[in-house]
Amino acid sequence: MSGARDRSSHSDGGKMPEQAARNSFGPPSTPSALARVISVFRREFATYFATPVAAVFIVMFVAIAALLSFQMAGLYTRGQADLRAFFQWQPWLGMLFMPALGMRLWSDERRSGSIELLMTLPLTTRDMVLGKFLAAWAFACVALLLTTPLWITIAWLGEPDHGVILAGYLATAMLFATLLSVSVCLSACTRNSVVAFVLSVAACFVLLLTGFSIVQDFFAQWSSKWVIESLASMSAMTHFNGLTRGVFDARDVLYPLSVVFALLWVNVLLLDWRGSQ
């Protein structure tokens, strides 16, 4: 058999096999790519709520976000009607919480053997990766949405710039997508969820840290300005900070989109490569 088989790259085939597939058995037609992604998305999203994961994750995320904003960053005592104290902690919360969401997505499938069932359903690898990623991201966005009472409180106490706060929420959602794509990709590399979690936290930490002056100062001692600027532009933190300040720069939006796209593509390649091993 030709080694060029790629589960992801095949759509629904040509006309002749299609006609052969239509017989007295089986479904009358091939579902669209969107319908296939939705079927995976539904199962994954429902799984969070079928287990204690949803309750534990949401309660802990909202509680820790509120605690950090009030106790560590003085959300109310600063005397400013904004949510900067809340947003400044989101990268660090995301660094821990997104790997917790993404770690089991592929490792559990491999450990339990259900990957064999999933991979032999009429779905492409792309459908599965996209459905799983979108379900985890949608769940993270639900947790993020549940922090909006902070926004309502600030709006009630003062006159915040709602545009900046909205941009902050969108930036956080995009940052979460970036960190989640790292975690989902690493989850495909191991059948052990704990290993996937630790690797993901480390990778997310590096992705955030390269934007910090302490790292850039370290490199500044012996490398060129070009290296330092490249490091800063590769950091999720740099682009996140840009957006949360309410300054729109297309690069800050393109960065998370391109990282997510690239890592999901790598995830598809990893799974297809494993199928050929």
Binding site: H10, A20, G113, P122
Partner: peptide
Amino acid sequence: AMNPLGAKRNLGYLPEGAPAY
């Protein structure tokens, strides 16, 4: 190899150990 989705639509498979969610 040429049309994996078309072939899989015509296939029912019980893997070893009957894994499920």
